[in-house]
Computed example of a mutant assay.
Amino acid sequence: MKHFEITQKGAGLHIEGFPDAVKVVHIESPDAVRLSDLALHKQDLEFADSCLEAINTVPEDPRVIREALWRSAIIHFLKCFGKSKARFKLTTDEALRGEPSEAMEAFNYFKALRDKYFVHDENSYSQSIPGAVLNDGSKDYKIEKIVCLSFGSVTMEQGNYSNLKLLIGRTLLWVVQEFDKLCESLTEELEKKSYADLTTRADVTYQFPTIDEVHKNRR
């Protein structure tokens, strides 16, 4: 799976690196849809990995920067395994096949972190305990202040960092392998078509999303 630079030429897009190319035709098939989904999964996984790498480049203070990168890495990794109406979800049965049982334990830990701590507030990793500060009784009132003692658990430590890094790497490897296999299959399929048929197919186009599309599913 290679990266190619895309430049804008006039009203269209140009993929660099193919001097003999005359056009980029749009392909439509279930395999093409799956290929598109795999590319988006790869994008999320690479972003998650980049967040982990960036943690090592920022100072420890303010702590919020590292924590934001840490949570973003977990959320984008698990996004690939979540339900979506726009793309198929990855499964641990495929992505982590052949890995030791500890890999699945780590995956379930990060999923619980996201589901019950980072995205939703459900488990004991965050707590707020209400209380009343009682004085020594020498005043004409007894309560000095109503307070809440708030606590949040620290989950970014070396063991968790290493586990997440390994999970992202293993999943990314599977995604790239699947993508490459689909590319080979689609190439064989298209090579059977006539050149005339291929040249009359629609070009690949891209439309910038509008504000109202933020509420709509992609497909």
Rank of each mutant, 00 (worst) to 15 (best):
F4L: 09
F4K: 03
T7M: 06
Q8G: 02
K9F: 09
A11K: 07
A11I: 12
A11D: 06
G12K: 10
L13N: 08
E16V: 13
G17F: 05
A21K: 10
A21D: 05
K23N: 11
V24D: 07
V24K: 01
I27L: 11
I27K: 01
I27G: 00
I27R: 04
I27F: 06
A32Q: 03
L35M: 11
S36H: 13
D37W: 09
L40I: 10
K42V: 04
D44P: 00
D44E: 08
L52A: 03
N56P: 00
E60W: 06
D61A: 07
V64Q: 12
R66A: 10
W70G: 00
R71D: 05
I75H: 00
L78C: 06
K79V: 04
C80K: 02
F81I: 15
G82N: 12
K83R: 15
S84N: 11
A86I: 13
R87P: 01
T92Y: 01
T92F: 01
T92Q: 06
T92H: 01
D93K: 12
D93G: 08
A103Y: 09
A106W: 02
F107V: 13
N108G: 02
Y109P: 02
F110T: 05
A112W: 03
L113H: 05
R114N: 09
R114D: 09
D115Y: 05
K116L: 14
Y117F: 15
V119P: 02
H120V: 14
D121W: 14
E122D: 09
N123G: 10
S124P: 00
Y125R: 14
S126R: 12
Q127K: 14
Q127C: 03
Q127A: 15
S128A: 15
I129W: 05
P130Q: 13
G131Q: 08
A132Q: 09
G137R: 09
S138M: 07
Y141H: 12
Y141R: 13
E144I: 13
I146S: 06
V147M: 10
S150I: 10
F151C: 09
G152W: 04
S153P: 01
S153R: 14
V154Y: 05
T155D: 10
E157N: 11
E157M: 06
E157I: 12
Q158F: 08
G159K: 14
G159V: 12
N160V: 10
S162N: 12
N163F: 05
K165H: 15
K165Y: 12
L167E: 01
L167K: 03
L167Y: 02
I168R: 00
I168L: 02
T171K: 01
L172N: 05
W174F: 15
V175I: 07
V175G: 00
V175R: 00
F179Q: 10
K181N: 11
K181H: 03
L182E: 03
L182I: 15
C183T: 10
E184M: 08
E184N: 04
T187L: 14
E188M: 09
E188K: 13
E189V: 08
L190I: 12
K193M: 13
S194K: 07
S194M: 10
S194T: 15
Y195P: 01
A196F: 05
D197T: 14
D197K: 12
R201C: 06
A202G: 06
A202D: 13
A202E: 14
Q207C: 07
F208P: 01
P209F: 11
P209Y: 07
I211P: 00
I211L: 14
E213D: 05
H215I: 09
N217I: 12
R218Y: 06
R218P: 00
R219P: 13
